[in-house]
Computed example of a mutant assay.
Amino acid sequence: MDGKANIPLGILFGIIAGALWGTVFVAPQLARDFTGLQLAAGRYLVYGAISAVLLVPRWPRLRAWLEPRHWRALVGLSLLANIVYYVALATAVQWGGVAMASLVIGFLPVVVTVVGSRAVGAVPLRRLAPSLVFSAIAIACIGGQALVGGGGFEWRRAAGFLCAVAALVSWTIYALRNARWLHQLPHVSAHDWNLLTGLVTGALSLLLVPAALYFDASTHTAAAWSRFAAISAGMAVFASILGNSFWNRMSRMLPLTLVGQMILFETLFALLYGFVWEWRVPVASEWVAMVCVGLSVVSCLHAHKK
């Protein structure tokens, strides 16, 4: 319903989704006085509310095909892509920093591409080798300083790394399952599927509210809560509503092996936003990383040429 295979347009949508998603790496730094659990609850409550409003005029048509198995799938996808992923990611950013979180999440293209290469009719893994090599170089450069710099071992930093790994696993499973569901439901638009995911995510986020308040012993001012509300609304609109919509459209236009490469743009934009936040220019290794991101996508495109 969103169009057939269209690699150039799909790549453009992937870049836009990456630019929008990259903002969620900076949001935890803007709201460091709030926990990752609170950030997830705030973001997805707004996401769910907006989705519910937008679904009202679409509901009669959607209700005609929705079955219990679809709701079960949406619950699983919502947990993987939103609740579990962002609680883990926000905690990783606050405990380990943007660079470390970007490094670990940057392995998503490699993991998704390798798994996607096993699908029927997919490009053989050997043809994807150059793209994977460039991906690995980019990831190593992006997080190199974060891993080798600083002092000795820190438990908080180690815990942040483990949270980033948990986010990586959660989103990898989501990317694969979501792409398969979108291909199984050609009659459903990517926008409607995103709104349904948002509706379920909003319902699940209600369960986070008691825990988010209970595990936070801090006292926040009215100004802090206003800032938190603005950040939550911004993430919901730009990352969840718009970012997910572009991602779902892209997932239908590109093969799964190329979908994996598009996740690199989230890492790249997260890094760029981090530079702005820290008010500095990239160092040599970071310039190399950005070049390798481009080369990775170009070589992956070449591998998909008939």
Results as ranks from 00 to 15, higher is better:
20 L>S: 02
48 G>E: 08
129 A>M: 14
62 L>I: 14
43 R>D: 02
81 A>C: 13
21 W>P: 00
111 V>M: 12
58 R>M: 11
56 V>W: 09
64 A>K: 14
82 N>Y: 12
87 V>N: 05
39 L>R: 01
117 S>P: 02
92 A>Y: 07
66 L>A: 02
26 V>P: 00
112 V>G: 01
70 H>M: 10
46 V>H: 08
48 G>K: 08
27 A>S: 14
89 L>W: 01
91 T>H: 04
120 V>H: 13
17 A>G: 02
21 W>F: 13
133 V>H: 05
88 A>I: 06
102 S>T: 15
76 G>F: 02
125 L>R: 01
19 A>P: 08
110 V>I: 15
75 V>R: 06
43 R>F: 01
29 Q>Y: 08
134 F>P: 04
126 R>P: 02
105 I>K: 04
111 V>S: 14
143 G>M: 10
89 L>G: 05
105 I>M: 13
91 T>G: 13
108 L>K: 00
116 G>D: 00
83 I>V: 13
141 C>S: 10
70 H>D: 15
102 S>F: 11
72 R>T: 15
117 S>T: 00
65 W>S: 15
26 V>W: 03
14 G>K: 07
64 A>I: 08
71 W>S: 10
31 A>W: 04
108 L>Q: 14
66 L>M: 14
127 R>C: 04
93 V>L: 05
100 M>A: 15
55 L>Q: 00
123 V>D: 05
26 V>K: 02
15 I>Y: 10
131 S>E: 10
143 G>P: 12
101 A>W: 07
41 A>P: 05
76 G>H: 07
42 G>W: 05
78 S>Y: 00
140 A>R: 03
137 I>P: 12
70 H>Q: 14
102 S>I: 11
